[in-house]
Amino acid sequence: MTSGIRRTGIEKTMKVVLLISALASVLIVVLIFLFTMKEAMPAFREIGVWKLLSGTTWRPGNGEFGILAMIAGSGLVTLGAVVIGVPLALCTAVFLSEIAPEWIVRIVRPSIELLAGIPSVVYGLFGMVVIVPLIRTIPAPGNAGYGLLSASIVLAVMVLPTIANISEFAIRSVPRGYREGSLALGATKWETISRVMIPAARPGIISAVVLGLGRALGETIAMIMVIGNSVVLPTAITGNPLSIFLSRARTLTGNIAVEISYATGVHESALFATGVVLFVLIMLVNSSARFLLNKGAH
């Protein structure tokens, strides 16, 4: 009888302990939000939200804290990565789900898994010794190789696995009946893929791209290593507007990482404010991806 009471006691205790563990993630999210907000408040108060967001100069020594250049840097490098990486990732996803024979899949998929596992600092190093010197050969005044284009290329490879994996899964989840129905009507394989399979998988594919976007915005170390880190609003360095990608830049993430260890006072607070902006941006991106995924499920 006593052992029965003891057993019930353990059961009840464990239930509470496990519930608390389950709620730990929420607690961490709340703590992160509160702490970052609390530390950012002085900056928001003293500099002003609008001035912080729209200011183009970041000179902590002079008390100037505008992060527009970093917002532009993060935005442009992500755009570049999307333009380079998304077509490759989507084509790979279609290849793996619809076209490649089984033995090819067994080569390609582990390769992509490995790409996903390579540490970002290794990508950064690879960018510094391979991509940057390559970009430096583009003849343009002031082109040092370090800049948005190098960073976009590195980032494109880094988000490739995320986008390819989720898209492949989305295409594979399309009911087999759709494929058979289309082929039975005399559609070619390609017509079936382009007119039935991809449209049916579209919500999943879009959310894959959006999740990739979120990852790109959050990348830190590899960006610091190849983007040049200058706090300037990126501009075209020659007459060609595309040469804006040869410009050096700094990302929101890089701004935090590079300066936090020695910043004090309003400067430190402004870096936390940078974190809040990044956090909000990524939450928006991720929740829209989740929204699209759920919409696709119904």
Partner: peptide, 22 residues
């Protein structure tokens, strides 16, 4: 709790760094 886990998995690592630092 599920919302917490999903949110946490989307937080970029530099934010964890910033939080840990603070």
């Amino acid at each position: 709790a599920r919302f917490g886990v999903e949110t946490l998995s989307g937080v970029p690592s530099i934010i964890f760094g910033l939080f840990g630092y603070a």
